[in-house]
Amino acid sequence: MTQQISPMPERKLTRDEVIALKNKRTLVTVFQISWIMVFVCLAVVAIQIRGTSGPLPALNAIQVIVPLGATLALLGSVWTAWQSLKAIQADQRARFFVFWRYTLVLGGAFILVMLAVMAFNPYGDLLQYSQIFRVMVVYHALHALVIGAWMVQVYRNAAQGAYGSSDAWGVEAGAKLWYFVVIAWVLFYAVLYVF
């Protein structure tokens, strides 16, 4: 069982390591603030196109419920990712594995569902809006897949004994980047389905 591999021994970080960790945390935060602007750009374009496309067709119950369910699953993965991070920071490895697996499953389910929604594009009759809808879903899915792949790698590293309370950066980065995926989708969901 992967959970039985002993973690790295705990040790105090040197001054340089503390600065390096601080640098990484700042980098991820600033990157998130920066890169969300691409999503803002696409959201603005979608709003503009919707304004010139005329009224959108009404969605049926399935077309509303399926993306809503996927979005709730994605929001749920925020909580599981956070629990995983707390667990690894407390050296509770078994708990970390449980919640990290939940995160991967919820995230994977979200990606599959949304790619299916994109394939059955409900706006096929509106050229530009249909195209921006596809671009937004695929663009988001690409980010979710890349960051999801990172999270799978984190799981594999952890299974090899990596990470612990004094070295949780890999998990922390994965979780924070996953939060980015969620925030980006909430922005898109609001534009595509709510307002």
Partner: peptide
Amino acid sequence: IVMATPFLAGGLTLLILDRVAGTAF
């Protein structure tokens, strides 16, 4: 740079799609 350049990246993506993928933004 970090706030403005990603905005251009979004627009350029759509421009490239217009040129190579047949979209009509």
